[in-house]
Design a protein around this nucleic acid. Sequence first.
DNA 1: GTCTATATGTAGATAGAC
DNA 2: GTCTATCTACATATAGAC
Lengths: 224, 224
Amino acid sequence: MTDAKAPPRKRAPSKRSLETRARILDAAEVLFARGGFDGASMRDIAAAAGVPVALVNFHGGAKEDLFATIVARRADALSQRRLAALAAAKERQSAPGLREVLDCFIRPYIDLARAGGPQWTAYARLIAHVSADERWRPISERYFDPTAAMFMAELARLFPAAAPCRIAGAFVFSISAMLSLATSRWRIEAMAGLPHGGNGGIDDWADVLIDFSEGGFRSVMAGA
Amino acid sequence: MTDAKAPPRKRAPSKRSLETRARILDAAEVLFARGGFDGASMRDIAAAAGVPVALVNFHGGAKEDLFATIVARRADALSQRRLAALAAAKERQSAPGLREVLDCFIRPYIDLARAGGPQWTAYARLIAHVSADERWRPISERYFDPTAAMFMAELARLFPAAAPCRIAGAFVFSISAMLSLATSRWRIEAMAGLPHGGNGGIDDWADVLIDFSEGGFRSVMAGA
DNA sequence: GTCTATATGTAGATAGAC
DNA sequence: GTCTATCTACATATAGAC
């Protein structure tokens, strides 16, 4: 019963094919994360994966499709971590507070970017590119907005008297600060007077960021 | 005494030449702001300015030089507004508080982006591109870091016991939130349930943003 | 200073042999 | 599935007439 749909039936791909495909997607993820869609060419990706250019098109399709595939590949895993954390928080206390809600959204991202391996580190940067460029709005809407809307609903529950615009503003400010850890930690370290490559900074920024977001939120809600 | 240096002496350019140059720089500013360095071609810029491609090279030089010129063109004006605001704040009270310092940094940017005309609106987006891409780090260091360092010093004065890393982190979070207003206001409005093009949102975000940054700062400083 | 025409490189994508 | 060779489009940049 595993067939009987998906018109152009296909056989299971060989093991080597799967490995090739994985190498290509991993290379594309790293290069797209570094320079965005325009900052990496199909040839760069092929070279990084150690395959001819034609194979990148064969496994990834057109460049835009490849990009969308890369974004989609880990989107569910991230969303599920966030939603699972939210569900767990609701089990502990029927109405989780602001800090708990923000924690459920932010910490999975930081944890995966920091300790999920190099591909997750790249993926975190990739999300920053997708979020910053309105050109990828359809991708955001498909893969990230549903989860964001769930958290937006929690925030609206916590501040029933606040204008949605202010809640959404504070939430987007928090998300921007979160993404800046993927793209601009070098700037933080430079500004703090730390040496270029040296890892003299904070290892796990999650708590600092959640402090910042919570304080920012409360301040905006109080000011309304 | 206005000559006697700059080896290849030049005459004052004609009025028409200056207008052409201005049209090219304005067009480049808008297009670079929309799509970043890679998102606009020299042909796009020439077409938007209504001139042949060769004129873009003539007035702007190579593409990277043109980009740097565009960033440089308004950098001083922005810095001077910020530093003038800071100086004025120091005249009112010898040691301005956190909110005043953040206001001096954030409000000039928001005001110019909102009411400085379409070129300043574009420039605000352009700064977001420059800040997000480490490739432009030399440009940032030259045109934006000196002013940022001045404000960093004020913040360090306000929180002498805090680790520089935490101050810098909170400052970069604030800057990221600020820049998100240039790149992601559509996302705020979408998340708040507002229609696509309709301007049903907040007109002047400066106070909301400064509330957020101040609250975030105090929260991070308290958590240390 | 401005224009036309062009040199030169590189991009994405595919055809067709294996 | 994989590879070589190639097609087509468009990029940056400049030469040289006006």
